[in-house]
């Protein structure tokens, strides 16, 4: 049994989550015994109908929520809370508005007491990775959505997480910026070798990014299907293979959403 877990970056075992509405006391079942294994260095996309519980699933992995049943094992160890080894990139960017771009990126370094000069150099390095050199002293309000998300990614990368959890990070960007950010993410992923789990409701995005694409059911979410995309990066969105896989996933999604 132990042998089986050692090779995995992440194992979800019978993971269930039920929320209790505070006002009504009603139970809301969001996740229903999810089982999933994620390999180190992989880029996995989670897709599913909107409101199905994808975000909750990611928050459980991040340790921001606790499961009602089952467990999340990160490198074989149960997750009991958030930690810098599991970096989270939020859809809302969640940049500290009072910190400059550079100071946002160095946040995780500053709080562990890394000397200022060293933290600065490291942060500058990650800003270069995300293509924001020269923007160090701007405040978040002065940035576009795409730039904000780059800063957020750099901030997360700076603490050198072993897994990157991304919750629809490009959802609020315009289509053009979004495509650019997807290409950029593939680049970063290839360069850093970090395991990535990426939640999206965009099938196009999932096919462009994902090695494995996990299809979830509508709420309460279960794993319905796993699609493997072995296309080489960078992927062409108009290639027949791309279009075929996208059609296959769309078919499952339509089925999921129409089922009542």
């Amino acid at each position: 049994m132990a042998m089986k877990t050692t090779g995995r970056a992440l194992s979800l075992r019978g993971l269930s989550k039920t929320f209790i509405e505070k006002k009504t006391g009603r139970e809301l079942e969001v996740l229903d015994s999810i089982n999933l294994e994620i390999e180190p260095g992989s880029l996995t996309c989670l897709v599913g109908p909107s409101g199905c519980g994808k975000t909750t699933l990611l928050r459980l992995i991040g340790g921001l929520e606790m499961p009602t049943a089952g467990e999340v094992l990160f490198e074989g160890v149960p997750v009991t809370g958030p930690g810098p080894e599991r970096g989270v990139v939020f859809q809302e960017y969640a940049l500290f508005p009072w910190r400059t771009v550079l100071k946002n990126v160095s946040f995780g370094l500053d709080i562990v007491g890394m000397p200022g000069g060293e933290a600065r150099r490291k942060a500058e390095g990650y800003l270069q990775t995300v293509g924001l050199t020269g923007h160090e002293d701007l405040y978040p309000r002065e940035l576009s959505g795409g730039m904000k998300q780059r800063v957020a990614i750099a901030r997360t990368l700076a603490v050198e997480p072993r897994i990157l959890l991304m919750d629809e990070p490009f959802a609020s960007l315009d289509a053009q910026t979004r495509n650019g950010m997807q290409e950029f993410l593939v680049e970063v992923w290839q360069r850093t070798g970090t395991t990535v789990v990426f939640v999206t409701h965009s099938v196009d995005e999932a096919v462009f990014l994902g090695g494995d694409i996990i299809g979830l059911s509508k709420r309460p979410a279960r794993v319905v299907d796993t699609f493997t995309n072995s296309m080489k990066y960078p992927r062409g969105r108009t290639e027949p293979e791309f279009i075929a896989l996208r059609a296959l996933i769309l078919e499952y999604l339509t089925r999921e959403m129409s089922d009542t």
Partner: peptide
């Protein structure tokens, strides 16, 4: 204060006092 900021700080390794 935006709860997302607190969550972001926690995922970056911040504890209560920080």
């Amino acid at each position: 204060v935006d709860p997302h900021l607190v969550e972001a700080a926690r995922t970056l390794g911040a504890r209560k006092r920080t």
